[in-house]
Amino acid sequence: MRTSPLLVFDGDCGFCTTAVRVLERRVRPRCRTVARQRADLGALGVSGDRAAHEVLWVTPVGTVYGGSDAVAKLLLSAGGAWRLLGAALLVPPARNAAHVLYRLVADNRSRLPGRTEACAVPERRSG
């Protein structure tokens, strides 16, 4: 059983990989990181579609948080002032704003610095 949380990100996306590396150096979250392409998503209880759509925070007991909630959990794990920011991102109206900002960045990551062709987010199919 894992004893620390796991941050699952898109390892094919240059923007995502750069963002995770900066977070590891500057924020220092208490977690392991793994590219979704190398993660055993089935064992984590996560679909490939979800992992392609958003960053994921998986707790040691298997609870999965995605998108801005995953970012908030990452910040909470870092402690200090980061912890305060993480807590704020989980409370409305900041939570709502964080979700909108996360989707805006995630849906446009192919246009951001550090991007690669792999950064293009696949369209989600409805129903």
Score class of each variant (00 low, 15 high):
C31K: 02
T33N: 00
C31V: 07
G48V: 09
F15H: 01
R28I: 03
T59C: 02
R21E: 06
R26M: 01
Q37Y: 13
G45L: 06
R36E: 05
G42F: 06
R28T: 07
A35Q: 08
A52F: 05
A52W: 05
G48P: 11
V27H: 01
A39R: 11
R21M: 04
A19V: 08
A52I: 02
W57F: 07
V46S: 01
E24R: 11
V27F: 00
V27R: 01
C13W: 02
V34A: 14
A19E: 05
G48F: 09
A35V: 04
V46H: 01
A43Y: 06
E54H: 15
L44R: 11
L23E: 03
V58L: 06
G48W: 09
R28K: 02
L23N: 08
V55S: 13
V55D: 08
T18H: 03
T59F: 04
C31E: 06
A19K: 13
E24G: 11
P29W: 02
E54G: 13
G42Q: 14
A19I: 10
E54F: 07
V34G: 08
A19G: 05
A52N: 08
F15D: 02
E24P: 02
C13S: 01
G11F: 03
H53E: 15
W57M: 02
A39Y: 14
V46T: 05
R50F: 07
D12V: 05
D40A: 15
R38F: 12
T18P: 00
D12F: 07
R21F: 03
G45W: 10
R30K: 06
R28M: 01
R36S: 14
A52T: 04
A39H: 14
G11Y: 00
G42T: 09
V46D: 03
L23D: 06
C31P: 02
V58Q: 08
T18Q: 06
